[in-house]
């Protein structure tokens, strides 16, 4: 389940960074149109994979409810990092995915 949260976090951070305001927070310049589109597509893809995984693990109904909860918490996590620890926003994604993979193997 940590992996699903990691994917929700990754997806939400992709969508956040596709917004010029948050992109500027980290890169000091405006995102290009292509960068914005890539971030959005990758973000949505991460969310979709997370949903698929969650439904596979917990069944359709409970999986859907749990994914929505994780999605909201992922959004809150992204906002909090952007507000207080903006440099951690991007590295936190891969770290969470790695931890998630590790926990699903163990």
């Amino acid at each position: 389940m940590l992996l699903v949260f990691a994917l929700c976090y990754l997806g939400m951070s992709g969508l956040a960074l596709a917004m010029p305001r948050h992109f500027r927070q980290l890169r000091q310049h405006e995102p290009s149109g292509a960068q914005q589109r890539t971030l959005r597509v990758l973000g949505c893809a991460a969310l979709a994979i997370g949903l698929g995984l969650c439904v596979r693990l917990l069944g359709f109904q409970i999986g859907l409810v749990s994914w929505f909860c994780l999605l909201m918490l992922g959004g809150l996590a992204v906002s909090s990092l952007l507000a207080w620890r903006e440099r951690w926003t991007v590295p936190a994604g891969p770290v969470l995915v790695a931890l998630g993979l590790l926990s699903s193997v163990v």
């Binding site: 389940m1 917990l58 409970i62 409810v65 749990s66 909860c69 918490l73 809150l76």
Partner: peptide, 21 residues
């Protein structure tokens, strides 16, 4: 859906955190 007696500790922990929100 309101009572969160499904899905075990995971769902209850998620409800707890969103309740704090």
């Amino acid at each position: 859906l309101h009572m969160a007696q499904f899905g075990g500790t995971l769902v209850r922990a998620l409800y707890l955190m969103l309740g704090l929100a």
